[in-house]
Design a protein around this nucleic acid. Structure first.
Lengths: 149, 149
DNA sequence: ATATGTTGCTGAATAAAATTCGAATAAATA
DNA sequence: TATTTATTCGAATTTTATTCAGCAACATAT
C-alpha cells in the first residue's frame, strides 16, 4: 500500500484543482463555453489565484488551530513585510496578515497537536524582530475558508 | 454583456471545483486511476470537505478584511455554538472559531469597504449574547487559505 | 448617426480528462 | 495458513474541457 494520501493533501492544499465548468453552466443556465471564457478571464486578470481543496483538519493531522497575535520590536515597525515573507513558506501557516489595533501581525497556524505547535513557536516565533506573541487556541471551528462545518 | 462573474465568484467561493487527477498523477508518478480511487476515499471519509477557488479579494469587492474578537455575555458562555451557528450563513464571514484566551469567539470577515463592514457590525454583532467586540483590521495579507500572495 | 475597433458570447468539432469495471495484488484478520 | 477486505491499475467508456470561428454587444471616434 502506497501512502499517497499525505502527498495528495499537500498538493491539494494550495492547488491541483480546477472549476467544474459543466456544473457551473447548469447552475447558471449558461453555455459551458461562456463559463469557460469567463473563468479564463478571471484567471488572466488574477482575480482567481488558485483552486484548492478544503479539508476536515481534525482528520488530516492538523487538528490544532491557533491564532497567533504578534507584537514586533520597534525597529521592525517600518517593514513588517520582511518577517512576513520569511513566514510565507511554512506549511503550518494558513494565513498571515499585517494588522493594526494592538498587534502588528496575525497568523493562523494549524498543527497536529501541542507538541508540534510548541516546535513551531520555538522555531518560527523566536525570529529576530518579534517582541511578544499571544496565542488564541481554537476550541471548535464552525466555518473555515468560507466552508461551514 | 451578462454579469456572470459575480455569480461564478459566489459559487466557487465554497465549491463547484474538483481535483485535477491527471496532473496529480503526473506529479506523483502514479496511475490516474489510483489517484482517483484515493481521492474518492478521502471524500467518502469526509477528510475532504470541498474543492473551491481562492481569490484576490482586493479584485472582487472583498478588499477589507477584519478579525473580530468577541466577548459573549455570561449567560451565553455555556453554548457559544448557538450564536456561531446563526453566523455561519453570512457570506462575509470566512471563518468562525470558538476560542479561549480572552475572547470566546473569533471571526474573520471580508467586506467591500468600511461602509459594508459597518453594516455588518450593526446587523450581525448586535445579536443577543454578544457583550463586546474588538476589530483588528488587516492592512495587508501575505497569505490566505494557505495560498501566498 | 455611422463607422471602426474591441470585447464578450456561443455552437460545433476536437482534444483531453474523469469514471467505470474487472482482474490482480497486497494487507488485514481469523 | 486460509479467508476476507482493501488497494492498485490497465483498458474501455463516458463525460468534460478546450479550441475555434463567427456573430452580437459595446465603446469610441468620426
Amino acid at each position: 500500500m502506497k501512502n499517497i494520501k499525505k502527498e495528495l493533501v499537500e498538493l491539494m492544499h494550495t492547488g491541483y484543482c480546477s472549476p467544474r465548468i459543466v456544473d457551473l453552466a447548469k447552475k447558471l443556465k449558461e453555455p459551458s463555453t461562456t463559463i469557460h471564457y469567463n473563468i479564463k478571464q478571471m484567471e488572466k486578470s488574477k482575480e482567481i489565484k488558485a483552486f484548492k481543496a478544503v479539508f476536515d483538519y481534525k482528520l488530516i493531522d492538523e487538528g490544532l488551530c491557533n491564532y497567533v497575535l504578534i507584537n514586533l520590536t520597534p525597529d521592525e515597525y517600518g517593514n513588517p513585510e520582511r518577517i512576513g515573507k520569511e513566514l510565507v513558506s511554512f506549511p503550518q501557516i494558513e494565513s498571515i496578515d499585517i494588522a493594526t489595533g494592538g498587534w502588528e501581525m496575525i497568523l493562523k497556524v494549524r498543527t497536529k497537536d501541542v507538541d508540534e505547535f510548541y516546535q513551531f513557536v520555538k522555531n518560527v516565533l523566536s525570529k529576530k524582530g518579534i517582541a511578544k506573541t499571544t496565542s488564541l487556541t481554537s476550541l471548535k471551528q464552525l466555518k473555515t475558508e468560507f466552508v461551514g462545518i
